[in-house]
Simulated scan of single mutants.
Amino acid sequence: MANIKQLEMIVKLREEAETKAAQLMEQAHQAFADQEQQLNTLRRYRNDYLQKLTQQGGEGLSGQSFTQYQQFVMRLDEALGRAEQSTNIARQVYQQRRQGWLDARAEKRAIEVLIEREQAQQVALQNRREQHQLDEFASRSFIRRSSH
């Protein structure tokens, strides 16, 4: 019985660890979603800007305007590269935190299974004791009846 109490205490600690891991995972997921949204916004902005450049180019652009457009597109491409890198890092952090949560959940479940097995063993032991007592009682009753 003491073993179960100890395991139950460990389960409680594992539940707290699982909850903390779930919170960290959710924060990482939100950060990843934010990064991904920012990346997509930047991609749309770049595409819109290139469409505008194409439209302006069809109407005629001065060399200086074209150079300015080109330089701005290069800066957008650099920003996109940084945003993609940040998004990839955020994705990796999320995946690590998710794995941490899955590991914490598995640890808690393993201990819960140990508790269930221990409880089942205790019930089986109690049943054997009761059966032994019943058998002993029946034997004594039989002996008493036989001797009379």
Rank of each mutant, 00 (worst) to 15 (best):
Y69L: 06
I111V: 13
M1D: 05
K108M: 08
L61T: 01
L125T: 14
A22T: 04
I4L: 08
L7G: 01
Q133E: 07
E16S: 12
G81T: 13
A90K: 01
E59T: 06
L39C: 03
A2R: 10
E8A: 04
E59F: 10
V113A: 10
F66R: 15
L76E: 00
A22L: 10
R117E: 11
R105L: 04
Q126H: 12
S141W: 07
Q27N: 12
E78K: 11
N40S: 13
L53N: 01
H132V: 08
A104F: 00
K12Q: 14
L80Q: 03
Q131I: 08
A17T: 06
L134H: 11
Q6G: 05
L134V: 07
G81L: 03
A138W: 07
Q131F: 06
V73E: 03
E16H: 04
A28I: 00
V123S: 05
G60S: 04
R117H: 11
S139C: 02
W101Q: 02
K12D: 11
E112R: 11
S146D: 10
Q6I: 06
E78S: 14
S147K: 14
E84K: 08
Q99L: 11
Q96L: 10
R43W: 04
R91F: 05
V123A: 15
A104W: 00
E118I: 00
M9P: 02
S65I: 07
Q56P: 00
A22C: 08
R82M: 08
S147R: 14
R109E: 15
K12W: 01
A90E: 00
Q64D: 14
Q71M: 07
V113F: 07
L61G: 02
M74E: 14
R144N: 12
T67M: 13
R43A: 10
D48E: 14
S139P: 02
Q68R: 09
R14C: 03
A110Y: 06
E112D: 07
Q92R: 12
E116C: 02
S146N: 13
R75Y: 05
Q38W: 03
Y69P: 00
Q27I: 13
M25H: 02
D34W: 04
N47K: 15
D48V: 05
G57R: 13
V123G: 03
R98S: 09
G60W: 03
Q131C: 02
V123W: 07
K5E: 10
R82N: 11
Q35L: 06
S141L: 15
T87L: 04
Q35W: 07
M1W: 06
F72N: 11
A17E: 14
E107A: 11
Q55D: 12
T41Y: 12
L53C: 04
E26M: 13
H148I: 15
D77P: 01
L24F: 06
V113L: 09
I4F: 01
L13M: 08
L24N: 11
G63Q: 08
A31G: 02
Q96D: 07
H132D: 08
R109Y: 07
K12P: 02
L7Y: 01
G63T: 12
W101S: 00
E118N: 11
G60C: 03
A31H: 06
D34K: 09
V73T: 13
M25Q: 05
L42P: 01
G58K: 15
M74G: 08
I143V: 08
